[in-house]
Amino acid sequence: MTLYSFRVDDKLNLIAHEGDGAAFSELPLGVPYYEYYPRLGYKSVDAVAYAIEHGEPLSLAGYRLFCFHREKCTADIEIIPQFAGECRCCGAMIAVDIRSGCSVLGEMENAQALVDIGKISVTLAHGVRNPLNAIKGAVVYLKDKYGTDATFGEFAGIIDDEIHKLDNFITMFLSTSYLDARCEEIQLNDLLERVANLVTLQAQACQVLFKVEYGDLPVIRLDSFNIGHAILNVVNNALGAMESGGMLTLRSRREQDGEAEVAVVEIADTGPGIDYRGTKNIGGFPAAGCRKLGRGYGLFITGEIIRHHRGKLEIIGNPHGGTTVRIVLPVIPPGEMTQGE
């Protein structure tokens, strides 16, 4: 991606510039480019002047410079001479592609990712509502007709309950932030049991052995819908990683984190494990084109939900295969976490 580009005449004076941010449109023209952009060097001379003099494109790969935002960074730079007629070189176009080091560019990319998530989320919320209503009607019909079957009645009740939760969530999402806390005092193991009920049949279909290990946990205060959503995101990622079967373990325990008491939920799989070369951005914004399936926003959303609860998301990989994701939540005294925090 080109962060910015500009054109100069044969005297190196600016005649046009483009870039991300309103500041570029306010820069004056008719002055030497190096008064506003980093001066580019090549063979102890000005790189732009060199390209114009020789009339040949010049590429500067991995060039170290202070970027437009006055930060040290690495960039790929293309200097392309511009010609008037067939022979006379009348200037050059310079395109600067920042590769790394510019925190401002990183913030801009993160902001764009948030915008993309917002657009996708609103579209998804509206798109889900109509088929959700159809499913709700079908479940009511089936319950009336086959409600005497105990097993069917149990699972129909789960479906009905989850439809109700999802419908309420969509209504809330379209009217406010999905991270606005609706906190309540719950036993986290009860939430894990509901997650297990939802996942058991899916695990069987994937030929995955699924087991749950409940630890001794206190009653804690949290937004049960969003925390349940976060745990399901991780569980679904784990199931997706075990295409040829395996084992998925969901466990809970109480731990000490320094002087604070925390509740820990672990989701461990026996899949191929994580790519250690890409662990730096785990739980952050998904890089464009880095996911074979989906957009990679699930883990990012999970991380945001956990962060909003003042918790931590930890990913532990095993070089021989398998991944353990730890969701660490503080045991907050009742009333300390309030709506909107």
Rank of each mutant, 00 (worst) to 15 (best):
L12F: 02
G340F: 09
E213V: 15
E243W: 00
P286T: 05
E18S: 07
E185I: 13
G246P: 03
D190I: 00
T302E: 03
L198D: 10
E107Q: 10
E255T: 04
V208P: 04
N197R: 15
L329D: 07
D223T: 04
V115R: 09
D160Q: 11
A134W: 01
A288L: 08
T151Y: 06
R129H: 08
S5W: 11
R70G: 03
L60K: 00
G298Y: 04
M108C: 08
I274M: 14
P57F: 06
Y37C: 03
R295T: 08
V115L: 13
G278R: 15
M1A: 14
F68G: 05
L239T: 07
C183I: 13
V212T: 09
M93R: 13
V328L: 12
G322C: 03
I315W: 11
Q339A: 15
I158W: 12
L132V: 04
D180R: 10
A22M: 09
G41E: 14
N237F: 01
A92E: 01
S121A: 00
R99D: 04
Q202G: 00
N189M: 05
Q256N: 06
L209I: 00
C73W: 07
S244R: 08
G157Q: 07
Y36G: 00
G30L: 04
R326K: 15
T171Q: 09
G228S: 13
H309V: 02
V208R: 03
G258N: 09
D167N: 10
S5K: 13
H320N: 07
V199P: 03
L188E: 05
A23I: 06
E314D: 13
I98W: 09
I94L: 02
R251E: 09
E184L: 00
F225Q: 12
T151W: 11
N189Y: 08
P38F: 08
F173M: 15
I52C: 06
V140T: 11
L293S: 13
D269G: 09
P319C: 11
E336F: 06
D149C: 14
R7T: 07
F155Q: 09
F6N: 01
L166V: 10
Y33Q: 07
H126C: 05
E26L: 08
T151A: 10
T74I: 14
A95S: 15
G258M: 03
T151V: 14
F83K: 15
Y146L: 14
M108A: 15
Y63A: 02
Y63Q: 04
I332T: 14
N318W: 02
R99G: 01
T176L: 06
E86M: 07
I315F: 15
S175G: 12
I306M: 07
D161N: 03
L293A: 14
G101D: 07
